[in-house]
């Protein structure tokens, strides 16, 4: 199964999203780029776990998804109020 080409494709997607994170004219734009990047990273971790048949990669992906959710909420709160 072509898991490794899919993972490379997702890595290219991550590179293209990084353009938006660097360019983004306002802070919410950068945050949107970061959130999209987190989702793609979780999916590529699952794909790599299937490619190498390692369960531990997918466990890392679950924890990464929940932690990135908390990170996004905190940065959004910071943008909303200007302080934590």
């Amino acid at each position: 199964m072509p898991w490794l080409p899919v993972a490379i494709f997702l890595a290219v997607c991550i590179g293209l999203i990084l353009i938006r994170v660097f360019l983004g004219p306002t802070h919410p734009d950068r945050l949107v780029g970061l959130d999209t990047l987190n989702t793609v990273v979780v999916v590529s971790m699952v794909i790599l776990g299937a490619a190498f048949n390692e369960v531990i990669y997918i466990d890392v992906a679950i924890v990464y998804a929940l932690l990135s959710f908390v990170t996004t909420l905190f940065i959004a709160k910071y943008i909303e109020k200007g302080k934590f």
């Binding site: 306002t26 919410p28 949107v32 959130d35 996004t72 959004a76 709160k77 943008i79 909303e80």
Partner: peptide
């Protein structure tokens, strides 16, 4: 998180 981001964007 999409909801939180859009609300933060509108309030800022």
């Amino acid at each position: 998180s999409a909801h939180a981001m859009s609300r933060a964007a509108h309030r800022s």
